[in-house]
Amino acid sequence: MFKLMGNKRLFILLVAIMVFIAVMGFTLGGRGGVSWPEKFVADTVAFGQGLIYKPVRSVAGFFEDIRMLKIIYEENRTLRLTLAQYARDTARLNDLQAQNERLKEALEFTERQKNADNYKYHIAEVIGVSPDPYNSTVKINLGERDGMKTDMAVVTVDGLIGRIVRVTPFTSNVQLITDLNGVEGTKAISATVKDSETDSFGMIESYDKENGLLVMTKIDPGDKQLGEGDTVITSGLGELFPHGLVIGTVVSRDVGQFGLTYNAMVKPAAQFTKLREVFVVEVPEN
């Protein structure tokens, strides 16, 4: 019985070897096409690879897009910082150029004034502006230690803007001439016409805020010198503002109250907004 079983196993082994050799010969031999089992296996493997590759490719592409977005974000951030720095540098350069132009005008102004009078001009920087619309004042960075005193006239390169009304050791408050409408502490400006100082006289006592014009009153009806287009300057007769400071230009002349005197509307020569540098006028003591 055991012998029969051993022969059976040997027989099965021989058959398996013969089948294996036949398959090897079949696969190694030349053939014109691919068998259907090979096609099935190849298609199955390709389908499986496709199922795996597509998600993997999508995930890889997703992370690649994230990496590219991060790179673009960093580049944009760097670009924004560069543009911001460029804008700051450009603004600073423009401000320096504007300041340089203003200082050139200031230098030319002081040179002209040296030839016109013997006043001393202290250049000051405006460091503050009053927010009160009924109290037009500005603060400058010169004070008692710089020789500033109350009632000193203050001008720009264009013309008179006001006078000092308060002094501290390091700063001074300047009341603008646009505040001449009966505000406590304001003083009228004695004025005349340039090149006709001995023939013209008037007082600037108020400011027409609606039209932006100074009102010159008490003009003698016999004064034929003052007319439209004339330059009005300080006369120096009021002993407050020194003689010769430009105030503005006459734009009209009308009969005053009761017809006894004339009034004139004067356009200020100076600008009262965006004040940067101003000059405090010091009159040498005789």
Rank of each mutant, 00 (worst) to 15 (best):
G227A: 12
A98G: 13
E285M: 08
V41C: 11
D223W: 02
K3N: 06
K218P: 02
S196P: 01
S172H: 02
Q49A: 05
T78W: 09
L13C: 08
P169R: 08
L176G: 01
K8S: 04
R112W: 01
K187A: 04
V215M: 12
A84C: 01
F279T: 03
N100K: 14
G222Q: 12
G222M: 14
I219A: 11
T82S: 10
A188W: 12
Q225I: 05
N135M: 13
V59R: 07
I161C: 06
A98V: 08
V251K: 04
V34K: 11
I247A: 03
P221W: 11
G6N: 10
K194D: 01
S190N: 12
R67S: 10
A16L: 15
F258K: 13
D117R: 01
S130K: 05
R166H: 13
V165C: 13
K8Y: 12
N94V: 13
D223N: 13
E228G: 01
T231A: 05
T273F: 02
K120R: 10
F241V: 11
I17W: 09
V165L: 14
T198V: 10
V266P: 08
G212K: 06
Y53T: 02
Q99N: 15
A106P: 11
G147V: 01
R112F: 04
P169W: 01
M152L: 13
D223H: 05
V278F: 06
R92D: 13
N76P: 00
D117A: 08
G162E: 09
E277W: 14
R9T: 04
L160M: 04
E105G: 04
I12Y: 10
I52S: 12
L51H: 05
V129Q: 08
E228P: 02
L213M: 13
T198I: 08
W36Q: 13
L83C: 04
A269S: 09
D199F: 14
S235R: 11
G147P: 03
I66T: 07
G236C: 02
V174N: 00
R145M: 06
Q49H: 09
I161R: 01
Q113R: 09
S136R: 15
T171C: 01
K218I: 12
V193K: 01
T82F: 03
G128T: 08
F20D: 05
V154Y: 01
G159K: 00
T217E: 09
I127C: 07
V215D: 02
Y86D: 13
G229D: 06
S235W: 05
L214E: 09
Y134P: 00
S172N: 02
K8P: 02
L10I: 07
Y207G: 09
D95P: 00
V165E: 15
S206I: 00
L51Q: 07
E210N: 14
V281R: 04
D95N: 08
M148T: 06
G229N: 08
L237M: 09
P37E: 11
M203K: 07
V280M: 11
G6K: 13
G29D: 15
